[in-house]
Nucleic acid binder design. Structure first.
Lengths: 147, 147
DNA sequence: CGAACTGTAATGAGGTTAGTTACAGTTCGA
DNA sequence: TCGAACTGTAACTAACCTCATTACAGTTCG
């Protein structure tokens, strides 16, 4: 089935915050764009806050803002903040040490899986929130011209 | 938490089959190496059979053998056979079309996520079952010399 | 004080995973 | 031709995760 959709939600929220510049948005406003729930948003944005990607201010008039420039936040930053642990699962329990393959395969697979995960993360690290914001701008501008 | 451990099990089983050359192994023998259950093995090897990676022969004396040369089977082949669907989950439901970001983010993310998944799959495609078998041989030989 | 926020616990429905039991179907050898 | 040794599957379980929701305590500001 794959991983959770938290990365998609996180990237969406970060792009939304970037879209509105320094303006702070409430979890309810972000939830509106996601057609989701403010509590869900606060949980995911909470992870982003713990990772140093956003700020939250409490109380009346509070909300969320980016803690860094959009071009200093990559998709991998968002991914790593909300998706803990490895992507590819290892053996559910250690294989048999009696078997030539069993006693060696875990260490060999670990290297392969880490390399594969790293390749994905590197690719995610090449796109920034500023890139996504720019593309949203471009698409919207083009639509505006056609109208 | 990540994906299922089926890829690890599948790669383990394929390496085991490669280790024993053309000899056919029963699901019980493979399960012994995995310290797991024959039914689980048959389910996962069944996917590998559907993907054309292994053969199964039924009845007494039956079992499993590789359907291709070990160097013609990559870790990605095993992965793709047992792990259906995308790795990175998309939005749980479509975002708001009222929002500039909401109505564009899905298409933008789709490209990024597909690229990222492809990067991982490409890396998995660079290692073959023959590579793993060779490394098992090498490790075992080195241990043998030290003794 | 009270409205408008964040932070977080608790809960529930639905789905997936890993594992198991059970059993039907197939093959081969004695 | 019977029975042992296999594969192929269905059905079931406990544990866990995800997404969503309700509820409420804490914070801030007018």
């Amino acid at each position: 089935m794959g991983l959770s959709s938290r990365s998609a939600v996180a990237i969406h929220a970060l792009t939304l915050l970037a879209r509105w510049g320094g303006k702070s948005l409430t979890s309810a406003e972000i939830a509106d764009s996601l057609e989701s729930n403010p509590v869900l948003v606060r949980r995911i944005l909470g992870s982003l806050r713990d990772a140093g990607l956003v700020w939250a201010t409490e109380g009346r008039g509070g909300g969320w803002t980016l803690a860094r420039e959009p071009r200093q936040i990559t998709l991998h930053d968002a991914f790593a903040a909300v998706e803990p642990g490895p992507i590819l699962s290892r053996h559910p329990h250690p294989p048999s040490a009696e078997c030539e393959v069993g006693r060696n395969i875990q260490a060999l697979l670990e290297v392969e899986f880490q390399d594969a995960e790293r390749a994905m993360q590197e690719r995610l690290g090449r796109t920034t929130i500023a890139d996504l914001r720019q593309r949203v701008f471009d698409i919207e501008r083009e639509l505006g011209l056609k109208r």
